[in-house]
Design a protein around this nucleic acid. Sequence first.
RNA 1: GUGAAUGUAGCUCAGUUGGUUAGAGCAUCAGAUUGUGAUUCUGAGGGUCGCGGGUUCGAGUCCCGUCUUUCACCCCA
Length: 459
Amino acid sequence: MDRPTLPKGTRDFGPAVMAKRQFIFQSIRSVFERYGFLPLETPAMENLSTLTGKYGEEGDQLLFKVLNSGDYLKDIDPALLSSKDSRRLTPSIAEKGLKYDLTVPFARYVVMNRHEITFPFKRYQIQPVWRADRPQKGRYREFYQCDADVIGTDSMVCEAEIILMIRDAFAKLGINRYSIKINHRGVLAALAALAGAGDKESSLFVAIDKLDKIGEAGVRDELASRGFSAEAVDSLFDLLNKRGTNQEKLELLRAQLGKYEKAAASIHDLEQVFTFVASMGGEAAPVELDLALARGLSYYTGCIFEVKIHDAAVGSVSGGGRYDNLTAVFDSKERSSGVGFSFGVDRLYDAMEELNLFPEETQRSSQVLVCHLDEECLRYGLGITQKLRAKSIAAEIYPEPSKLKKQLEYADKKKIPFAVVIGSDEMKSGVLAVKNLKTGEQHLRTLEQFLSDITAIPK
RNA sequence: GUGAAUGUAGCUCAGUUGGUUAGAGCAUCAGAUUGUGAUUCUGAGGGUCGCGGGUUCGAGUCCCGUCUUUCACCCCA
């Protein structure tokens, strides 16, 4: 008999890992809620028609399809079946798929529930998504996203708040060295016009997005091989190579791209984002206008974001952008602009592990372990344990009579900071022997003294 | 989806041109210490060598297939 295995790209999360993941989830959730976002959950499965065509051709190939139930071949045209054309057969045998991100199901939800929704609608969503990608480090087939989106306003206050939420979340997680990159699809479109890209826009974007990875020479090679003229590429790099503050880059864009009608509006958008961030006291947030930032799902139409953690090789840990036409895809009368972003929990976890950023408390199960020397002490200890719990102190008791050595080892392994030892002396006197497992010190305390000691310590 | 590596104890890894009974460190468990963990000492347990097939007198070692993990491309959190 074969031992069980997991599907490629999926993982179990044991208690030690879950404690750290919960720390990330809770940190992010508290930031979302502080900015007025409300929770939403949608099904793991959507109709395939809801998902296909939203993520570009590549994205469609990465969708997990769910086989129809029952005798799903019964009514299939035999000619189609014998053609062995998987792509044409798939819609007939699979009408559902696992969700690929949280934004498209959210847009679907908005269209279906618009009469009950107060706009602008701010929701957050923390759920797994699935992609039939080939797994690598930091790339999983099942992973969690934490999305916050606002739909029904085109105010750049939303973009500015996204930047502040990233800053606040990272502060809670203890991530100090990172950069938030921002760009705008309208600016990219103008760059494409400047470079005479014509219908080769997307191959231009793919190339310049690799700038920090393969360098200027690499990008030039790739663009040359795709038929871009040397002059066009030169004028492109005049802009891409500009260093300086975000304001200086905006000035340059205004001067160079002002003649393109859409660019002017995009530059104004970016300007507003920076202004609002400053008004919220976020000047120090590491936001960088990066003209080479081009990636992101195909439905983005406005500002786009990407966040990278320095000193950790995990790819981007957060991304997002504004999308103007997503609800219209589900209902042409429904034209509301939305903007949102997502944290990739699994990559945040990998980065934090690499940088050793998880606080020790996240590993802790209880604050106190009640230890005992025999059956009678155990029974006495049960009462003590409940009294601690009644005071909201996470406490547990070793559930069977056992050597003290074993009980203390248990506390040590579970990183429980305090042990209360109950023996016949303690039962007689009513005082507790409290041992601090970190320092090794042991003192006699009444229950009241111990309670006030322990509540004074920050969790 | 294309191309390439990897897999030996719970973990990190040794294992010679194919040759007897596959090793180490850490971890685990027990004891030294019957009211004190994390340090010390002693001992013990733990292996379908990823899985399946092939070559060979003989395979952890060579060949084929397969799965896993990883890397590059593509794309993305």
